[in-house]
Nucleic acid binder design. Structure first.
Lengths: 243, 243
DNA sequence: GAGTGGTCTAGACCACGAG
DNA sequence: TCGTGGTCTAGACCACTCA
């Protein structure tokens, strides 16, 4: 086992991580400015910033443009519950949570056509839900679904990564694809995160008993604030779900 | 809607992305060197590299130290199937896949104790599975599980993000937590990825009928090569799984 | 306006891959 | 050995926050 030398970025990140774990830096506390830290560690600001990026992706550090770097609040971390379980709330309520919803009508185009399994130009209702700074949701529903298919309506966007078509008719299948990637320019702007912070992107399709897609959603969760959780229970008769 | 100006990084990434989508750059093709591209776009190498980082996280570009940047092979992308579904293989077999397994015995400590729900210092068997360059798996199993609990054994590590304890006894519950973050130094080295490429980290716990944890796993999937997929089917009697 | 983080530059130097 | 990407520097300049 040849012991290799970690980069300076890693050493600095490890050092700060240790300080946080040891309680020398407390949740919510502001770190010294990046220039201060850079000179303290004897590195350039770029290197120091890349060290902070590591900690940020772990949720240990939160950056705010113009204000500073802060030790992360673990309680402000949210968990997306997969499989249609709408109960989530990791722990408590985040006072900084802001909710915005924009409803638009549009016609199915591009990737939405195969996703929703509809003919091109089918009328869709789009819900653009931002639960800043935790998530960005783009939810698409065929406009011809009966209105009562949306009993929860936009307010349920308050729930993190929420489903809009709340089982009317009840969904029989939910498919969720998760990827880690960097945010697009628009996503970074909306979520007010740096364009170097990875996000957890979830594409969710909900299908009813007739095989019809009753909802498709693109969810974007900044990695420093959110993760996803899935629980699968086996049916007693070895009748587990299969793809 | 105030139209804001994207950064240079975004413009360059968009330009190259368009070229790939248009087929001007084909899968497997080598891009010009970073210095060449940088001068062509009139930016510094750092800026150009951050543009490539965007494309890399989408799987459109693959970087290899010393060789160059290449247009990504979509077919070499792998999908982790959640919920214990071992069938996965997105499409075909990746010829570059290398599999290594290291088996170690150790005693439960730190985060492994609550994860496996065992007393501290319980004997564990660790399987370190690297299916380079696609995934890194650290799988922990209580050593006192009957040997036939491991029918598939290490070779099944060949399967991507594989489960080792292949239902003997059959698992009744699988819990999977997914986060996006930057890799640790060791992870980046093992996976041979840059330390700026985000990974999809999965912590999986498998529980048998008695409530005992029969397997815990840490999986690390580089974002440019892998994503995760979950399918949830509702039980007929509105008996959907609940957390 | 003062101080902060965000983007970007124009390099230097190192590590890796292939001939 | 040569060309490549990876790390890092020492700044400049811009955007944001707050007093």
């Amino acid at each position: 086992m040849t012991e290799t030398v970690p980069s300076r970025r890693q050493n600095i990140a490890d050092d700060i991580r240790t300080q946080i774990a040891a309680g020398e830096l407390k949740a919510g506390e502001r770190l010294p400015s990046e220039t201060t830290l850079a000179s303290r560690y004897g590195v350039s600001t770029s290197t120091l910033r890349s060290a902070l990026a590591l900690l940020q992706s772990e949720g240990l550090v939160e950056k705010t443009h113009g204000k500073g770097n802060f030790v992360g609040h673990a309680s402000r971390r949210h968990t997306y519950a997969g499989g249609g379980r709408t109960q989530f709330e990791a722990s408590g309520v985040d006072p900084t949570l802001r909710v915005t919803v924009r409803t638009t009508r549009l016609q199915a185009q591009g990737h939405l056509v195969p996703l929703l399994r509809v003919p091109a130009n089918t009328e869709l209702t789009q819900f653009l839900c931002g639960t800043s700074p935790h998530s960005l949701a783009r939810i698409y529903i065929p406009s011809d679904l009966p209105p009562k298919s949306l009993p929860c309506g936009p307010p349920s966007c308050r729930a993190f990564g929420t489903r809009l078509a709340e089982h009317c008719p009840p969904p029989t299948e939910i498919r969720e694809r998760l990827t880690a990637r960097l945010p697009t320019y628009e996503e970074a702007e909306t979520l007010r995160i740096g364009s170097t912070l990875a996000v957890l992107a979830i594409t969710r399709v909900t299908i009813d008993a007739t095989g019809r897609v009753i909802e498709a959603a693109h969810l974007v969760l900044p990695s420093h604030r959110a993760d996803a959780y899935f629980i699968t229970r086996a049916a007693p008769a070895e009748n587990r779900r299969e793809g």
